[in-house]
Design a protein around this nucleic acid. Structure first.
Lengths: 238, 238
DNA sequence: CGGACGCTTGATAGCCTTCAAACATAGTGG
DNA sequence: CCACTATGTTTGAAGGCTATCAAGCGTCCG
């Protein structure tokens, strides 16, 4: 049961009981991916719809020479992709920690959204949210310095996790290597390491054993110039 | 008549005559913006739907300290925004050259897409295309160097303009200042100037008087590591 | 003609990368 | 149980790409 996905849609729209049941039926299979596993490879043929049930994953695109850039993170409730412009997916998805994914038929899913106004609107809002986050990532790597980028990444992650009830008390699971942070912030591993040490020394935030602890949210958000507006979370979630 | 918009949707789906007529009616007002004008300001309240009829505009987000980052360009047929998560838009839009925009009621527009499957599917594909382009921009500023970024920007622009019949013979209108290129590539004006001079010296591409001339497409695309797959244009458009 | 704007150039500085290597931890196989 | 390997983290030194600062030039326009 893709509860997390239904919950995400319901953060945008009210679903009918029928719609909830349909969604439950549409995602039957599930599969667990270990840390570092490829959930989706770039240019894979589309296999069906998928939604993250638990864990954290990263969506990435890469260059021919092996360089990689994460373009967003997937949290519980997020779709692996929205569809459907070509036969092949345009981004890869990599599991950070252990990640559980529910799968369903793409056609069945498209039919569901064509027949249920609530699902269609929920999907529409979900993709708009993804688009807004994607643009913020462009701003992040384009116009913030290394410290701000990393701090912003952490602020975003904590805010999004809080919104789905997966983080509180300024702590959350962050099973992500410094190399992955580098590929998210457009930096090198070495530099990420140095910046993280500075953030730890300044007692703003620390990442240890896959757990991130924010010691001074106000100072961290300030350094990151973090404004959660772009996440378009409902008031209650902030 | 938002012909360009209908054409864009029809590059993805077949619209019925009824749908075309409805779209024509939905965008009645039109307005022209001079070079540099703000078509939409960040955090503006949403005013209605808008679609670019002619010209080029840039979608941007900015930081408190005045830094700005363009997150994508709007060409004829592109919507100013897709909707609808909060009362305020999350990106500004600035006219580069003289830009004509058609406007319509947002509610009427949403109703149209709720009632017409073709329009809904076309919109869905349009937003997926925007999302893919947005992710490519993140990759661009995150993992390419200055020369590659600028070259990639130009390759993208030429490819997209060609697809809508607004460019050919390796020339196109590019009424964009070096400062705007800097804000698109995450660089400074000074550095953009130097890189453009190098590209001109190497006889790859030149931008003069608002017109961009690509002298050596193969070499330019090679330096940019440009692969148009992410644009999801139909075969015929490439 | 003065001012705004955009383009250009030079000098200097610095953020971040690159290169190289050491260290820690966990998993594997003998 | 212990080499042995792989992966991730950490540290140091050096270099380069890009930013910053400053100024000059050209053009357009009121």
């Amino acid at each position: 049961m893709p509860i997390s996905f239904i919950r995400r849609l319901e953060s945008f729209v009210q679903l009918s009981e029928h719609e909830r049941r349909s969604l439950n039926r549409a995602f039957e299979g599930r599969r667990t991916y270990g840390p570092g596993a490829d959930i989706l490879r770039e240019h894979d043929e589309r296999l069906g719809m998928g939604v993250v049930l638990s864990g954290v994953a990263g969506r990435y695109r890469s260059l021919g020479d092996g360089q990689r850039q994460f373009v967003g993170y997937l949290l519980p409730g997020d779709l692996l992709y929205f569809g459907a412009l070509s036969e092949r997916v345009d981004c890869g998805v990599k599991a950070f920690g252990s990640t559980v994914v529910a799968r369903g038929s793409a056609q069945e899913f498209m039919a569901l959204s064509a027949q249920n106004a609530g699902i269609a609107l929920g999907l529409w809002k979900a993709i708009i949210q993804d688009l807004s986050i994607s643009r913020e990532w462009t701003l992040n790597v384009g116009r913030r310095n290394a410290e701000q980028r990393i701090a912003h990444l952490i602020c975003e992650q904590y805010t999004r996790l809080s919104a789905i009830g997966a983080a509180e008390n300024n702590r959350f699971v962050m099973p992500i290597t410094q190399r992955d942070i580098a590929d998210s912030a457009g930096l090198t591993t070495v530099h990420v390491n140095r910046v993280l040490q500075r953030l730890k020394r300044d007692e703003l935030v620390r990442i240890e054993n896959g757990v991130c602890t924010i010691q001074d949210w106000a100072a961290l958000a300030d350094r990151a110039k973090f404004d959660p507006f772009y996440l378009h979370l409902s008031r209650s979630a902030l």
